[in-house]
Design a protein around this nucleic acid. Sequence first.
DNA 1: CTAAAACCTGACATTGACGTCAGAGGCAAG
DNA 2: CTTGCCTCTGACGTCAATGTCAGGTTTTAG
Lengths: 133, 133
Amino acid sequence: MRIGELAARTGVSVRALRYYEEQRLLSPERSPGGQRTYPESAVDQVLMIQHLFTAGLPSRSIEPLMPYVRSREVAPELVERLTAERERIDGRIGDLVRTRDKLDSIIAVVAAAAHEGRPCPRPEGDLVAHHPR
Amino acid sequence: MRIGELAARTGVSVRALRYYEEQRLLSPERSPGGQRTYPESAVDQVLMIQHLFTAGLPSRSIEPLMPYVRSREVAPELVERLTAERERIDGRIGDLVRTRDKLDSIIAVVAAAAHEGRPCPRPEGDLVAHHPR
DNA sequence: CTAAAACCTGACATTGACGTCAGAGGCAAG
DNA sequence: CTTGCCTCTGACGTCAATGTCAGGTTTTAG
């Protein structure tokens, strides 16, 4: 299929698809006229790429993971790299959960104040970040 | 305290602190000579800001939340805004968890292949994103 | 065959959270 | 008063993942 169809089927812009190629995340064939030609499998690959992007991985991190998605070679360090990325994501999840919980306590205090009288109690330290460093 | 000390105590660069002021996340006083002077409480505020940044909130979203941290006024829509941000974060956590789990299945398959023989089975579709749209 | 639609390359624009540099001024110690 | 460090403003640079535009080619529909 050509680039427009792939874009339509993945919800990703044409520009983005060309960018993915530039970053060597995709390697489409070319028609005699020079137009990109993608196989069916490209749809899933693009969705996978989007998935990893939303996880905060930069294309540099995704690129070395693509050979596995495409062929079936097992590069030596592949498991390590995958695991490293997994840990990174895990860490970010932890950060987000902590931040969400912190927001929850703030919401509780503010909501209570708004519900009753106007004045809102001073933040009690706990509401403020304690970076474990 | 002056900007250098605040930077040292928070681990944030001087440039970043000036940027925060530009975004109206901080409003330090000025010494007669024009230098920024921060109260003790700025340390916690900066840590809070960092916390929200790492949660993926842009400064535009953080700015309307700062009045609560500083004074104790309860703006009318504050609870709504806080809740909206909470939901955003919650969504991102969901994304990350799904991505992590997907990575986990990939790791399992690759690790098994690497452990035994070389060739790695073809990805079984499940390993690739199925966007619920 | 022709016009429209889709595609091509190349390049500059954008957004956010800063980095970095230039040139000038403030401030404590000796 | 001078040295040296910290700070100031202003402005341009960076990085990532695109958006957008220009000018030209390929493919498709009629």
